[in-house]
Design a protein around this nucleic acid. Structure first.
Length: 620
DNA sequence: AGCACGCCGACT
DNA sequence: GTCGGCGTGCTC
């Protein structure tokens, strides 16, 4: 194998944003091989990127060749991620777990006994048959319509064909519940994967994958990158959830990468949600799972205002006295205040961007977080003339105080990021609620994520107007999907009452019975206002401890970008969150009708001092 | 002027 | 990851 002839390879360092370096070796190596190379005084792991001619400069020699490698598909997908999401190749490839050189590629079929598999209803069977025929599709079905049984049937089918499956969920906190469910059918063939697993646990799962015992990997975002051979299926459950978008480099969207991976590997991709994203509904074939599995009656009541009022307290009391359980949602107390009208529920929108304008008390003005347009704080609502406008909302702690005082004896579970800090606390809170020890689950966004709560007969959703007023082109989508998700948590077994607090009941009422109607109207709005999926957005973040330097980088970048005709600079200036970790933050928001010119322009600007977020979901 | 410290870029 | 160059800011 070894000879005196030298080969030269460009390598990227694993877990590093550094540019590629060139090393020499006596061996011919495969692209994707993992090697150890000297760098200054240390030896580091790197991946062979490509073969090159003998360079002009002196080269060091590769220290050793390790017994793991990235395969061709992993290298190609990492290349795509690094280019589309603006990270180095080293950072992109590090998302993946490499294959062992000894890995076997053939898997023997595993048969799941038919009698233990869930029996599909006619509606489920029809959706299943349709999904079998499609390379990729969006499964659109309300909460409780039995999507999980369809997933299980699909995964069982894959196993019978000697293929493996990946099942993505938006959050780690959802995995224990799904694990229980999957183990019933797949036992040791299924493993749960997320970034918080111990090194030891990860190693043992990887061993199981390598031996072919594990055929299904389920978990959060990172489960997408495990080294499964013969991948046949990727399921992205709750595909509308923004948790799929990574907030650090590479800032990839797991749902979109899943679709790419599916087409590269010839694996089926099933996106699923009761409240699908506008973009998925627009882009993919939709398979509807119409009728709820268990049909229960839901009665809606609309209440205006922004506090807990007597109607709510009385209703909570009634349900409590009847021995039933309730759920109350409050939006997370965000960093930004918005002026909204108590009377009509509407917020003041930016005239240029159609997103809510944020209130900056310090500067006494309203500011658009997209284009940085500002105007004085107004006193009256431009929609109905009502005065005064409000900006304060209730927090979870205050809400608990008010309810505890009014409803004697009720035990309330605080369900938010402040109180649910660990998996153990989550489990205990849910257990107390399930056992009936507590009767009201009161919390934030977390409530909307598919945890199973048994006998809820009352759901109260507060602060929807606040969500509607967010500086986000998807504010309406967020508000509507939240309402549907929370309403879906109640009435699983018995009829349920749902109280919706909004000053704009007509908006929500129009769509209550039909989320698809909302999608159609919202897509029309997005097309008119030129937002995704009818345009491409990118956000540039500039952070520097020296404010004038940050400002200069921003302006220089804007100047360079102005040369590109096909892209629009929506706005630039101080970022909504002006300072993080002692660094002053500036941002630039860009839009283009097509993504390719936007990508091209951004690849031309100096990216060392800026961070690019392509297809952003967060504008803070 | 001299020195300590921290940031940033290069390393192959 | 580690090293060294350089600029900033503090002290003598």
């Amino acid at each position: 194998m070894t000879n005196s002839f030298l080969y030269y390879y460009e390598v990227y360092f694993i877990r590093s944003s550094a540019p590629s370096l060139t090393y020499a070796t006596h061996q011919s190596l495969n692209i994707g091989s993992i090697v150890a190379v000297p760098l200054k005084t240390t030896v580091n792991e790197a991946v062979i990127f490509r073969k090159v001619k003998k360079p002009e400069f002196e080269t060091a020699e590769i220290t050793s060749v390790l017994n793991t490698n990235y395969n061709r598909e992993q290298m190609e997908i990492a290349k795509f991620i690094s280019e589309y999401y603006f990270s180095s190749f080293g950072e992109a490839i590090s998302l993946f777990i490499p294959f062992k050189n000894t890995s076997l590629t053939d898997l023997l079929p595993k048969k799941i006994e038919e009698k233990i598999l869930p029996k599909l209803s006619d509606i489920q069977q029809k959706a299943y048959d349709q999904l079998l025929k499609k390379e990729k599709a969006l499964l659109f079905g309300v909460t409780g319509s039995g999507k999980t049984e369809i997933f299980i049937s699909l995964m069982a089918k894959m196993m019978e064909e000697g293929k493996t499956s990946i099942f993505l969920m938006p959050e780690i906190s959802l995995t224990p519940q799904m694990e229980k469910r999957l183990k019933v059918y797949f036992g040791e063939s299924v493993a749960m994967w997320h970034s918080k697993l111990t090194k030891k646990k990860k190693a043992s799962i990887l061993e199981g994958i390598e031996s072919g015992e594990i055929r299904i990997v389920a978990g959060a975002r990172s489960a997408l990158f495990v080294p499964l051979s013969n991948l046949g299926l990727i399921i992205v459950d709750e595909e509308h959830d923004d948790s799929y978008k990574a907030m650090t480099r590479p800032r990839y969207h797991a749902r979109d990468v899943a679709v790419l991976m599916g087409s590269k590997l010839g694996a089926k991709v099933v996106l699923a949600s009761a409240t699908p994203s506008m973009s998925s509904y627009y882009k993919y074939d939709v398979i509807k799972l119409d009728k709820p599995y268990i049909e229960t009656e839901k009665k809606y009541t609309f209440i205006s205002g922004d506090r807990i009022n007597n109607t709510m307290l009385d209703t909570i009391d009634t349900h409590y006295k009847a021995g039933d359980q309730s759920l109350l949602f409050l939006p997370t107390r965000g960093n930004f205040k918005y002026l909204y009208c108590e009377s009509c529920g509407k917020t003041h929108l930016c005239p240029f961007c159609s997103v809510g304008m944020a209130l900056h008390r310090k500067h006494r003005h309203l500011k658009c977080h997209y284009c940085n347009y500002t105007e004085p704080i107004r006193d009256t609502c431009i929609h109905c003339g009502h005065t005064p406008l409000k900006s304060e909302r209730m927090g979870t702690v205050e809400a608990i105080e008010v309810i505890s005082e009014a409803v004697e004896g009720i035990q309330i579970e605080q369900f938010d990021k402040d109180s649910i800090t660990t998996a153990k606390k989550l489990k205990e809170a849910l257990q107390r609620f399930e056992s009936g020890e507590s009767q009201l689950l009161l919390g934030t966004q977390m409530l909307s994520k598919g945890h199973d709560y048994a006998n809820i007969t009352l759901s109260i959703i507060m602060g929807l107007d606040y969500i509607l007023g967010l500086a986000d082109y998807r504010a309406r989508e967020r508000a509507m999907s939240l309402l549907f998700q929370i309403a879906g948590r109640s009435g699983r077994a018995k009829a349920a009452q749902i109280i919706v607090q909004t000053g704009d009941p007509e908006f929500f009422q129009t769509y209550l019975a039909d989320y698809e109607l909302f999608i159609k109207d919202e897509l029309a709005f997005l097309e008119m206002a030129e937002y995704p999926p009818f345009a491409s957005l990118a956000r540039i973040l500039i952070a520097h401890k020296d404010e004038s330097k940050a400002s200069k980088i921003t302006l220089d970048t804007v100047t360079k970008l102005k040369a590109f005709e096909e892209i629009e600079i929506v706005g630039h200036g101080k970022a909504p969150v002006e300072k993080i970790a002692n660094k002053f933050r500036f941002h630039i928001l860009l839009r283009a009708k097509h993504r390719v010119p936007l990508l091209k322009a951004l690849h031309r600007v100096d990216c060392r001092e800026i961070e690019i977020d392509f297809d952003p979901v967060d504008f803070a």
